[in-house]
Design a protein around this nucleic acid. Structure first.
Lengths: 131, 131
DNA sequence: TTGCAACTACGAAGCAGTTCGTATATATTT
DNA sequence: AAATATATACGAACTGCTTCGTAGTTGCAA
């Protein structure tokens, strides 16, 4: 599976969130997101180009039946996140998932509800592993 | 803080693991690691160049008192991992740490011991949060 | 129908990271 | 002392990603 680059990922993020969109719409969302910070807006043709390349790579599908092409994510969010995560764990944590989790938890930003949810998942995993 | 690139990170990994080393030693470790896979070995001057740039960036310190310079990590592993993690969570999980943790746990590769350790940490966090 | 706005397509510049050849200096071996 | 091995330094090529200008097309409004 092809790993999306930085900007490809941000575009996928928009498509995952909002469903099929035109280049114009994606570009608007991205610029709405990054305004407020001092970042300069992304040019329309820049977004267009990247989305065209994404279509070639199979990261998005596009519907060409209208003048404004409509793009949709061709890769599932969960699967993509798993892939990225796996690569990241290898790169930054020597392949140790639990090291990463400990580090993420240690950052002290999780809410009680989140902790609860995670604990529940762990208990489920323990059961599956012990039986 | 400066985020290390891919190859910089792999070099830091070696230095974190083994302590201060020469370029030759680092290069050997890297090539020992990546042999076995079909990957072609990293040239000595490539590693040298990267480590020189790292020294300029302040990612490593170097001791020039001998002919073979000795490099050591100038950034702590934990701090660096935290930084990378934070960036990664933003890029791939829309900033949600707990999403990432759930995804990491869901991959089903954690051992019982690891789960135990994580659970302990969660309970500690819960106590801290509730008091 | 003429002109303006919005779209796609595409080439090319720009940039960061990586890789390597080569020049040069310094040890070590014979 | 000469030859050989091993260092550093550095420029330059190469790669992948991003960014943009511009040309050409299509729809819409005056």
């Amino acid at each position: 599976m092809i790993a999306p680059t930085e900007s490809e990922l941000s575009i996928l993020g928009v498509l995952w969130e909002a469903g099929p969109l035109t280049v114009r719409e994606v570009n608007d969302v991205l610029n709405r997101q990054s305004s407020g910070n001092g970042e300069k807006p992304i040019g329309y043709t820049t977004t267009l180009k990247i989305m065209q390349l994404m279509a070639e790579k199979g990261l998005v599908d596009r519907d060409v039946s209208n003048r404004s092409h409509v793009y949709s994510a061709a890769v599932a969010q969960e699967r993509t996140q798993r892939n990225l995560l796996s690569r990241f764990v290898d790169r930054a944590f020597g392949g140790s998932r639990s090291e990463l989790i400990l580090r993420a938890l240690g950052d002290g930003n999780a809410t009680t509800d989140e902790l609860q949810e995670i604990k529940k998942l762990i208990e489920k995993l323990e059961q599956d592993g012990t039986e």
